[in-house]
Amino acid sequence: MVELIPTQEEIRKALKERHGTELQDKLSSATVAVCGLGGLGSNIAITLARTGIGRLILIDFDRVDISNLHRQQYKASQVGRYKTDALSENLKENSPYIKLETHTVRITEHNIPELLKDADIICEAFDRAETKAMLANTVLTAMPDKYLVAASGMAGLGSANSIRTRRLTDRFYLCGDEVSDAGDGLGLIASRVMLCAAHQAHTVVRILAEKFEP
């Protein structure tokens, strides 16, 4: 049986009615990279795809694990699949015409310039503090034309209201409470991780709309 889905023109028209032509044209022509497709990255990607971002670069070396299902945008039937492949499928269900570029690799300071060269905005969505710092230092010192939207501090049951966005330089935004480490106490709770992912996705949309203050 053939499933009938809306045409690209119909979806574009619906987005323009929602966002206005001027903003939607900016969103449609943007390329955003999502580095790490876990609790932050999978939620950022889903949100940006729904918002009508034209092209996403999705990077993660890992496979979907049963321990990911409580906060990451994967299905139980996708356990064991590469996150890049599983997330691409899930994104296409809602946004069938989005352009996706996937890289199933571990990000290092050596491959960052090549992997991220086409991105207008880069979302840091890793789990480990050392990898977060490595990406931030590499992008912000070697790729001065990129925006980086990073995250730090979203674990535990702290208040939703302590998740915030700060602008540290013209091109460096940081979301989170900056203190709640996943290694302490309760670990990661879906709702609070999603809040932080939403801060990151919203910062991307605001940058594209040329609203640069968080």
């Binding site: 790490g36 876990g38 609790g39 932050l40 990255g41 969505a125 890793f126 789990d127 480990r128 503090a129 050392e130 977060k132 710092a133 931030a136 990073a150 995250a151 730090s152 501090g153 979203m154 674990a155 540290l168 940081l174 900056e178 203190v179 709640s180 480490d181 996943a182 290694g183 670990g187 990661l188 991780v193």
Partner: peptide
């Protein structure tokens, strides 16, 4: 100067 000290989780 601003020193950002990342914590884990994502």
């Amino acid at each position: 100067v601003e020193i950002v000290s990342f914590v884990g989780g994502g």
